[in-house]
Design a protein around this nucleic acid. Sequence first.
DNA 1: CGATTGACGTACG
DNA 2: TCGTACGCCAATC
Length: 112
Amino acid sequence: MDRHDDFFVMVYEVVRLVPRGRVTTYGAIAKYLGASRSSRMVGWAMNGAHFQDNPVPAHRVVNRLGYLSGKHHFRDEMMMQNLLEVEGIMVENDQIIDFKNYFWDPTIELAF
DNA sequence: CGATTGACGTACG
DNA sequence: TCGTACGCCAATC
């Protein structure tokens, strides 16, 4: 995606800022970008994340309940869960254990 | 070109 | 507390 879709690019930028071992949500990103009601677009933006030359840790983005709703979009369905577990995040039944504990909210962490 | 569909989330009864 | 509606908007049918 050469064309600069500001929104999409900004989504990727925020996702790249998510620290190892932490996760964030589509809604949180949307809110941070001032489009709190367009959380769907964040999810849609992630569709193009795989085509970015700069790596985007898409596995650190889950829905607000801590479910791995996007795992089907990885080459291997187990990839998302594996990547998270490698970072110390336990996943059971496609849901993150103690999700609140790992939640990284850009509107708070990047507050300025 | 209208209808449907989402890696979502909130509002409302 | 729980199910349904709906906003959002690009992509696809």
